[in-house]
Amino acid sequence: MWKPQLVRAESSLNIPAIAAAHVIKSYVAQAPDEVSLEVGDVVCIIDMPPKELSPWWRGKRGFQAGSFPSECVELISGQVPESLVNSLRKPVPKKRGKFLPFLRSLVKARPQRARQPEPEKEGVFGCDLGEHLLRSGRDVPQVLQSCSEFIKQHGVVRGIYRLSGVTSKIQRLRHEFDSEQLPELSVRDIHSVSSLCKMYFRELPNPLLTYQLYAKFSVSTGQCLAKDMYLFPGRPG
């Protein structure tokens, strides 16, 4: 999945904001080029590509700049806190430009308290696995069951999980599963189906093996490798 990369945090802080948003869903940074968010915070948006191209936006939270999931924030319509406006670099006025009047309208608007976030739509992708299974009453998510059965029947092809599918077809399948529909899978799009499976695991908030068990899995893997090298000393690692 494409995510906008930051060249330098200092240079990102100098980029003028194009919008403002308040955080409706907390997020903990998973990489150096990401920024953590807490519910109620106000964020300056400096890059917001369409969601069909990338679910990641870039923004500034205080003196930190980085990427974050766009679903974690909600744009502020016509109202920006004064402290946020004062931190923005003033744009160079252009002849017959519309940006300066727009900025003036934002400054004149009095800030209001953050509204209570609306209940998020219950989807499939990006949801906690335990909560989703409890809500759906299933033992295995429908998307994984449908895709795995289809791949088992038609997936005897070269590079089934190595080659990527068509982005537009993957997004269509994702939307239909999120809408609790059962899309019709086609053998011609077998790589799109396998890419959809990888996308589901990649977007889990908590990995399938969980962060809490990561250390134990690392130790177990190291012990298995050491035992293998002891039993087969001439075998390459």
Score class of each variant (00 low, 15 high):
L182N: 13
F201V: 05
L13H: 03
V7G: 07
L182S: 14
I15N: 10
A65E: 00
G159V: 06
G222V: 00
S11G: 08
L75T: 15
S70G: 12
S192V: 02
P69D: 05
H154D: 09
Y230D: 01
P207M: 04
K198Q: 11
E131S: 06
P93E: 06
S146E: 09
G237Q: 11
A20P: 06
P111D: 03
R138L: 15
P91G: 03
N206F: 06
G130M: 13
M48D: 06
G62W: 12
Q212R: 10
G165T: 11
L100E: 10
S218V: 08
A114R: 15
C197N: 07
N86W: 00
S70N: 05
I190H: 10
I151Q: 07
S67C: 08
L106D: 02
L204W: 14
K108N: 14
R89L: 14
P55N: 04
F99C: 08
K216N: 11
Q30K: 14
R104N: 08
R135K: 13
S179H: 10
L103R: 11
S105H: 11
P207K: 05
R113A: 15
K60M: 07
G62E: 05
Y27E: 07
A31Y: 04
H191Q: 04
L103A: 07
P50R: 00
F125T: 01
Q223M: 00
R61P: 03
I190A: 04
E203R: 02
S136V: 10
A114H: 14
S36C: 05
P101W: 13
